[in-house]
Computed example of a mutant assay.
Amino acid sequence: MEQIARDPRADFLAVYNRSIGRNGRTALLYWLENETDFFTAPASSLREITVRDMTDRNAPGVRQLSEAEEETVAILGLLHDVCKAGVYHQETKRRKNQETGKWEDYLGYTFRDPFPLGHGEKSLFLITRHLALTEEEALAIRWHMGAYDDAVKGGSRSMTEAMNLTPWVWRLQEADMCAAWIDERSAAE
């Protein structure tokens, strides 16, 4: 079966422009496109998870999402990782070639965060400079790292409280994990 080449930037823009209609959307997109490396930095199946979650098992067919739900899916799926803009820097590195035993140069990425606010926290900060979020969206973005979040690893129970307030928290976590552990690995094979 032939693979069709996808353009992630075009896919992002199509969903963004179709689904996000809030005030500030143009300013946020301008910032992402012109003042960050968001579309080139190494950078998640939220809609499918949401539809699956919201569809009554006994109902015929699949539940259709409302316009507001589609917008939330787009915001969460597209923007939860804006904190990654400007933190991956390409540079020449050295490694020992396992076959020849000789040292060689290669181009790799180094992570340097000029504004180390925290992963979810930084995404929230950067997004809300341009676009208002609902409380549920803010909680989902803040806690999307799940068990990998430093506050959770330190014993904070706030993520559990956020999950009790809205299913968007665990939906985004599940989608992000699917993207990292299934989608991206399948694409690499």
Rank of each mutant, 00 (worst) to 15 (best):
V169M: 03
Y106M: 08
A27H: 12
Q173K: 00
K122C: 07
Q90C: 03
E67L: 15
Q3N: 02
W181E: 14
N34G: 09
Y16R: 12
A147C: 08
R52N: 06
S156G: 09
H130V: 12
H144I: 01
H130P: 08
L76W: 06
P167N: 08
A14H: 10
M54V: 05
E135T: 08
W31D: 13
A68I: 05
D56C: 04
Q98I: 14
G61Y: 06
R95T: 01
R52A: 14
G21E: 02
T110Y: 07
I141M: 09
S123M: 10
E48D: 14
L78Y: 01
A140V: 04
D81S: 13
P167A: 06
L46H: 03
E33R: 09
L32N: 03
E67P: 00
R142I: 03
S45I: 01
A180S: 11
D113G: 13
A147I: 11
D56I: 05
A43D: 05
G86T: 09
V152M: 03
D183I: 06
T50I: 13
P167C: 08
I75T: 03
H144V: 01
L139K: 09
L65S: 11
D81Y: 06
L131W: 07
K96W: 00
E70K: 06
T100W: 08
A10K: 11
L13R: 07
A27P: 00
N58H: 06
E91K: 11
G24D: 03
L124K: 02
A74H: 07
F115Q: 09
Y88I: 08
A147S: 11
R6L: 14
W181A: 10
D53V: 06
E71V: 07
S19V: 05
D7T: 06
M145Y: 06
E184Q: 14
T26G: 11
F38I: 11
W181K: 15
E71N: 09
D105H: 10
D11G: 05
L28H: 02
A188W: 12
R25V: 00
G108Q: 07
C178W: 00
K93Y: 09
G24V: 10
A138N: 04
A140Q: 09
H144F: 00
I49K: 00
T110G: 02
R142K: 15
I4T: 12
W103F: 07
P60Q: 08
H119P: 01
W181P: 01
P116R: 14
G154F: 09
H89V: 15
Q3L: 11
T134S: 15
A14E: 13
R52G: 04
P8H: 08
S186E: 10
G21N: 12
L131I: 10
P116S: 07
E184D: 05
R47F: 00
R157G: 11
